[in-house]
Design a protein around this nucleic acid. Sequence first.
DNA 1: AATATATGCAACCAAATGGTTTCTTATACT
DNA 2: AGTATAAGAAACCATTTGGTTGCATATATT
Lengths: 106, 106
Amino acid sequence: MRRDIFQAIADPTRRAIIALIAVQAMTPNAIAENFNSTRQAVSKHLRILTECELVKQAHNGREIYYSLEIKKMKEIDQWLEQFRQIWETRFNQLDHVLTTIKKRKK
Amino acid sequence: MRRDIFQAIADPTRRAIIALIAVQAMTPNAIAENFNSTRQAVSKHLRILTECELVKQAHNGREIYYSLEIKKMKEIDQWLEQFRQIWETRFNQLDHVLTTIKKRKK
DNA sequence: AATATATGCAACCAAATGGTTTCTTATACT
DNA sequence: AGTATAAGAAACCATTTGGTTGCATATATT
């Protein structure tokens, strides 16, 4: 049961849910209306998203509004940071590194 | 067999592989030395990464150097773009939206 | 009080995942 | 030519995943 953000966003339905509630908090029923699967399936996705804290709940009577925990989304952004350095500064230099290795071996 | 970037980066070992070859192109054997699992396991990860074009190969004799396809990594960055707008401009407004809904229902 | 609605939880199931072991192929070394 | 090494492919296996159906619980509505 590895429950981290990366595993959470791996599923396309979950990414769609995230995109939905990013705009505005929604109840499980309202979210489920946007998909072909059952409410329970969506509920399970919400549970996974909640477990990794990508989503927060707000109870209102018998309804539960789910909304995105934007802070957590930033963690993906932070992970990308290390590669951003590469694609901004080095660009095609990876090929150079490769060429260097090849020459050294010959 | 959904083979997209998000599913590819879901696995921690694959993220580690990505981080490794981002710095410099490496052969499967060299990569496998950094992990506890067998070379074949790493090889399977490389296949998945190759299938979703996150990684490219460079053959050199019997060796195959794997390196990161930085362009593909940008796709994750692009997906984050929609949320970046939210966390930069709106910030705590999601809670406001929620409150609004609550009030409207009461 | 009785019924309807919103939600979560548990049991179950087929398919996918991550790993292993074994085998084959191709290139390098002696 | 014969052996060693690099790597991929296939078969197999336990576990996880995403989904379903059915049931329980709590809050609204009448």
